[in-house]
């Protein structure tokens, strides 16, 4: 609650939180089917209808209402983005921390494995995983999660290495603090800032990767809508029905903006140094 209040007071946090709130609302409504129309129903007469009072964002080639599909798609895309980034953050942080802490051989082994993963283009690696396991929401989540794990491992390892050298870690050793205590209180707590920034960035990338996978037909399966799928379907109709591209693109863009603004605000709020210096 304290953090929510602080976000509301933070200038850019306010905007970001507002955007995310609108998206959450849209996603919840979409999930419960409270949409202007059924997202799967095809209004054959109104195919490629321009935005109007009936169809707020127009209709697609099959006459489905774009607004309703977007509302459903936001939920789908965001669940995948959040879940995969959560996996990547957890796995990457643990790997990066341990690599930095153990050092030497383990550092070499863990980080070389991460380098191998990082060497593949993200979408190609995701494709590979999906090709082995088969498409579906869970596979998408797992694939995107694995793809972004090395980035988190790298982001964590660098600062963790320098924190490890700081005097307060040595001080903790002289008190006899346990390794777990040092890793969590002294290293992890100081990694909050780079991690929040990375999470907000990764959320944006994950949205795009999901869109890319769906575009290739390996993410969300039609007829269920997702932002990426809608974008890919609109590709051939760009000149005849630009709204079909415009709205999903705007939704993705604003969503990413929302995450980034909120992330910036969180980073500031979680840093005790920004809570004003005492004279």
């Amino acid at each position: 609650m304290r953090i929510l209040g602080a976000i509301a007071r933070h200038p850019s946090g306010r905007i970001g939180a507002a955007i995310i709130a609108v998206y959450l609302l849209a996603a919840v409504l979409g999930a419960f089917g409270i949409t202007p129309h059924d997202p799967l129903q095809q209004f054959r007469i109104d195919r490629l209808h321009a935005p109007s009072t009936t169809y707020w964002m127009g209709t697609d080639l099959l006459g489905r209402d774009a607004t309703s599909r977007l509302m459903r798609g936001i939920g789908q895309s965001f669940v995948i983005a959040f879940a995969s980034v959560a996996i990547a953050t957890a796995a990457g942080t643990v790997i990066g921390l341990l690599a930095a802490w153990w050092g030497n051989l383990w550092d070499g082994i863990l980080m070389r494995v991460m380098d191998v993963l990082l060497a593949f283009p993200a979408i190609l690696l995701a494709l590979l995983i999906i090709a082995i396991v088969g498409p579906g929401t869970f596979t998408s989540v797992a694939a995107i999660g694995i793809v972004y794990t090395p980035i988190f491992a790298r982001v964590v390892r660098g600062p963790a290495l320098s924190l490890k050298q700081r005097d307060f870690v040595d001080a903790a050793r002289t008190f006899g603090s346990s390794q777990t205590f040092i890793l969590t209180r002294h290293l992890l707590l100081n990694l909050v800032a780079p991690l929040t920034v990375q999470v907000t960035l990764a959320l944006a990338w994950a949205l795009l990767t999901e869109a890319g996978l769906s575009f290739l037909g390996l993410g969300t399966q039609p007829p269920s809508p997702s932002l990426g799928l809608m974008l890919s379907e609109s590709r051939n109709l760009m000149e005849r029905a630009p709204w079909l591209m415009l709205f999903p693109a705007l939704v993705i863009m604003l969503g990413i903006l929302g995450f980034n603004l909120t992330g910036d605000a969180l980073r500031d709020i979680l840093d005790p140094r920004t809570q004003g210096r005492a004279a």
Binding site: F168, G176, S177, R185, L189, N190, P272
Partner: peptide
């Protein structure tokens, strides 16, 4: 450098005792 910037004084002083 010898005080963790993210902990308040109470947590800092408690650490040796907790350990």
């Amino acid at each position: 450098s010898s005080l963790n910037p993210r902990l308040d004084v109470e947590s800092l002083l408690a650490e040796p005792a907790i350990a």
